[in-house]
Design a protein around this nucleic acid. Sequence first.
DNA 1: TGACGCTAAGACTGGTCGGTCTTATTGTTG
DNA 2: CAACAATAAGACCGACCAGTCTTAGCGTCA
Lengths: 202, 202
Amino acid sequence: MNDRRTRIVEAATDLICRNGFQQTSVDDVIREAGLCGKAHFYHYFKSKEELGYAVVQHRFEQFAEEGLSILRDPMVDPLERLDRFIDAEVASQAEQDCRGGCPFGNLVTEMADAHEGFRQRLATVFERWAGQLQSVLWEARPQLRDDADIARMARFIIATLEGGLLMSRVTRDVTHMEAIAGDLKRFIAAQRRETPAVSVGP
Amino acid sequence: MNDRRTRIVEAATDLICRNGFQQTSVDDVIREAGLCGKAHFYHYFKSKEELGYAVVQHRFEQFAEEGLSILRDPMVDPLERLDRFIDAEVASQAEQDCRGGCPFGNLVTEMADAHEGFRQRLATVFERWAGQLQSVLWEARPQLRDDADIARMARFIIATLEGGLLMSRVTRDVTHMEAIAGDLKRFIAAQRRETPAVSVGP
DNA sequence: TGACGCTAAGACTGGTCGGTCTTATTGTTG
DNA sequence: CAACAATAAGACCGACCAGTCTTAGCGTCA
């Protein structure tokens, strides 16, 4: 059945996000999932690489559900949503004791140069992530300066978060991530229209 | 002689910066350096890990000389130096076709969680890097707002550059790095004193 | 010339890896 | 019960790795 494949992908996602792709062996995944032999694994996946692609896909779906969903909450002001998303990233880093970093960033570092297939799939992940941020910023457009470049801002936010994760990971000090996230919020705040837009009646 | 050890470290630095630590075998290093056998290698280095530490050290010395030296040029205004440093990072990324990223960032991702020895040495690297940035910002203090937090700014700059390298690496598009670097410069510019400080005569 | 000590080179060891192949077990149909 | 199909499990293969051990070749000194 297909949910056995799903089960394998889940186990592999855990392992790969924790230890990286190269440091996770197919045997490890089999053992962790514990419901098929090696030959059977290669019935579900043409190769280990194929498993890696499935993991990228799966992890992004998790992220879209657990992380990016904050950006979609229609009951909250868009710029407030953005702040909450940034706070959630900081909180998540604190929760895992500054270890692990961003699974997508990790895989970029590990695989992007050597493996075009991974690079493309990861590029798609970041594109979609940036797309969600752009949607929020677009909603917040009336509050933003006319010259605010939304696509650019979205990429800047991602880059800064990724860098913040890296810095707090190496220092193992979440206050670094907090400070960087704080500065990022100030950067975003600086893109707000100085005089708030006034809605004009008919 | 000791310069044979140096030669090995140089070869290993090339290989490890290009392919990562785990993906570089001791045999690869031997072959690349081409001037000693394996047993001899283990005379110079207690283990592969030890070689890795030497590579971190060596690569940082290169970086301090080639990259960070821009920050020390006494003939240039400090904030101008900072801009030039950022430009140099972008140019370097363009030169290597958006591949490779930052060797220190790569090693953090690869090793920091699993290997305390690497984590500590890499933390030192980032500390020194941040230290150089702080020196520049300190020099620029008269031009900066009174509430500018210099240590925080230094870390923010590093984080943003690291994130920019990652983004342009996955998209293989240096314009992303350029845009992020541009926003970073705007962030720094926003920390300038609004009314320039006036030197008061006696 | 001959005996000895030192070093460089790479063969070797035990282990891991991705991926395949064989075998055992189960279920199904007459 | 018997013959066969489908599937599961893990033994196995060649390649590679970090680290050690053996050996062959060199210079040195008598």
